[in-house]
Design a protein around this nucleic acid. Sequence first.
DNA 1: AAACAGGCCTAAA
DNA 2: TTTAGGCCTGTT
Length: 272
Amino acid sequence: MEIKTYRLCTAREMDIVKTFECGQCFRWNADKHGKYTGVAGGFAAELWEEDGSIIISGGGSEAFWREYFDLDRNYEAISSGFNGGEYLDRCVEFGRGIRILRQEPWEAMCSFIISQCNNIPRIKGIVERLCNLAGNPVYLGETEYRSFPGAETVAALSLEELAVLRSGYRARYILDAAKSVAEGRVDPERLKQLDYRSAKKELLAMNGIGEKVANCIVLFGLGHLEAFPVDTWIRKALKEHFPPDFNPDSLGEYAGIAQQYIFYYARSTGNE
DNA sequence: AAACAGGCCTAAA
DNA sequence: TTTAGGCCTGTT
């Protein structure tokens, strides 16, 4: 695979630590120097910050990565339009530089099914074992990584084979979802064409996908930025820092971005 | 040791 | 329509 190295954007446009550590993705990992490596769209890449710029080195086109990192959207302008009060302003300030990744629909579906009632280190472990089990090799120079396995590949596995993931009761949901996709009952790519409500409705009909997971899939996998997933952290933040009658929908078409700022801030400050 | 972790499903009111 | 209990596994 051809490796290209170039300046992707400014460090001000995207903070790679916040973007990769804010809990939206599970396949980007840093080495001890802060260089992140991950696989998306079948391409492996490394990203690091250097003199105020974000440098990327890997496969895939620049257009692909600009789309993946949502670089053609003005997060500053969007954030300044939020009307969520002083606490949200603090979250925005704290999370400045986060970008909502445009992850692949099937990967997002599978990953967020795994995420339910789970913690991030364990989610990452399960996803990594799934990729090692069923993904295809992807090379970056001499180093081998694994792509996220296609639904057809996962659907061909048995529950017994999936046991190595240690994903517990979620294995059945993973397999059900993979079969739904592989057999054409659900087409994750087609869901991208639907509006937020229609896409979510289809997802809610699937086994193992409820309100929260469906919202994560449409937000992180289908690019519907109005989705506002409410998990335990967000629920706690809403209760403690927003008016009792506050409705997240009032944040508008980019509510999902606000959600990620709140989630990141709540998780960063609530753990210590 | 008991409780909890980015929930969901089913059964029962 | 809302609520309780169960569910795999790992960590604290």
